[in-house]
Nucleic acid binder design. Sequence first.
DNA 1: CTGAAAGCGCTTACAG
DNA 2: CTGAAAGCGCTTACAG
Lengths: 346, 346
Amino acid sequence: MKTTIKQVAEKAGVSIATVSRVINGFENVNAETRERIMKVVAELKYTPNLAARGLIMKRTEAIGLLLPDLHGEFFSEVIRGVDEAVQRQQYHLLVSSSHNDTKEIEAALRFMRGRVDAIIVMSPQVDSDLLLSNLPKGLPVVLLNCHLNNPHFDSIVIDGFGGARDMVSYLLGIGHTRIAVIKGGENNLESQERLRGYRTAFINHGMTYNKSLEFDGDFTEASGYEAAREVLELEERPTAIFAFNDSMAVGAIGAIREAGLRIPNDISVCGFDDIPVAKYLSPSLTSVHVPIHDLGVMAVNRVFDRLQNKGKTSAAHILVPTTLQIRTSCRKITVQQNQSKEESSR
Amino acid sequence: MKTTIKQVAEKAGVSIATVSRVINGFENVNAETRERIMKVVAELKYTPNLAARGLIMKRTEAIGLLLPDLHGEFFSEVIRGVDEAVQRQQYHLLVSSSHNDTKEIEAALRFMRGRVDAIIVMSPQVDSDLLLSNLPKGLPVVLLNCHLNNPHFDSIVIDGFGGARDMVSYLLGIGHTRIAVIKGGENNLESQERLRGYRTAFINHGMTYNKSLEFDGDFTEASGYEAAREVLELEERPTAIFAFNDSMAVGAIGAIREAGLRIPNDISVCGFDDIPVAKYLSPSLTSVHVPIHDLGVMAVNRVFDRLQNKGKTSAAHILVPTTLQIRTSCRKITVQQNQSKEESSR
DNA sequence: CTGAAAGCGCTTACAG
DNA sequence: CTGAAAGCGCTTACAG
């Protein structure tokens, strides 16, 4: 069915070795022979089986990317960054995502074996053992936002703590004191980091945080929507909502608008990630800026560093700083407004 | 470095054939031998090289997906659908995207050779020849929204014409007559289809469309933003803007808000695709609903149909209908409003 | 129940 | 400049 090097060799009346040389652009082939072979290649529409080549070359020219999910703009931005960087090196990308349980992650990991030269893992659920026992030893692994303290692997982690702390500091600075948060999953380490940042900001300002203002979400728009509805039902409405990612902020905005409230006049909203759509929302969304695209690029750079200096370089552990992207979804609160609210606080 | 079947066989004191049998769960292996091998497999953390297996089995258990771009939510939704459907079949996904020119597409196509059992192509720029000459013959190919009339390939196409026509009919029905459109690229076939739908709606209503109301975009938020600014500079402002995808609608909304105008009170806006975020925008975006996620699922179903009935079934050509998703971003216009505007028309 | 051997499609020293 | 042969890591008839 599919043309092989053997068929080309036969038709051209040469050995497969010579065909291989022509295909790979070696110089030491007689011009006439080369042309004859090229012609046959074109006739038969021959394309080398790169999987077979990878087997013998021990280089697949591909790297794998393991993602937990594909909802929202965050992950596609990561893919975009990775893909771009990978292509720049003439490499290719193998993406595997939407894994709900360990079994699926294992299957994905095993699938990568022999098909990639390195792997980038961005799955909050993986642990070192799972990785170690399902990946051939020696395969470079870069962990993206995995909060997994294995010094063997390179890791790149977003500074969720610092980002959340800065955002809340900003909100406190412009007069907000009742700030509701919409968290990620209970066991999500990233969410825990951001919550720690949220609380720390209060402490830094000599204030106390209010646990009854912490609502659960799961990083989806729908969960942000639901959580915001709960927030709005509170006897005393917070003056601001801080969603732990932009998707949830988008959902929250929907719920707030539906309740007939204005943003930021009646309530301020901010998010985390600064996904591309954030600046186009109305009002434009104040968010903790994460260089999402660059995250992918950085991961790829680490991969190639490991690939090029096999065993020579040791694993790097990078904490990616975030910056505050202040737009128009949060307003300044006057003291009176807060005080009047404070009074009826329970 | 990486453990091979040979090393396992050696350590277990058996032949590689027996190890292979155990790995693949064959029954005809002595229980003791099996256990001994299993133990060694665990000790050595052996995972079979699936690329090598694919070579001999002539089945890679992977399918390829070729995408033009990764901006916005549209393509990640497609990936999500494809990945989900593929995983259901215990298959894996190989994604390749962001190809700007023919060279890159060719490289991606050739890379797939030997690594996938079938390929789904969603690239407006590919032509039959490119596909045919860079893909081994016999490889099942499913075209997604490619507008490429090659009966050899399965194809799934969104009814852009019908969707745009219905949307404009709806707008005309609620009193809009000056409807600006923000198009995709000049040479983009999908954009052309939608434009045809836009114009046809006018004709169907016994009206004439106004070419000066057709603005160029490129399906990105930024281009929607820019185009909307142009629209707002028009001497006589249209009462509605129809963006040919939701990303551009999002950009347009940003520009409108920035100009201090209200949606839909001052101007109505609608989009195409109905990406997940559309319903959470404020106001919620009226859009032509495309079953994006299902598009991926359908493509995978076609792939497996071809795979399971090798050569027996012939290529299917599916036109995917769209539906109108009416939300709150378009308002009804009274006759007077239109007339007063009509007067100063140039 | 187990192993030796052939072969998947390729590359690369080694001869000539 | 070219070919025969070995080998990448695997599976699968074929013997025994």
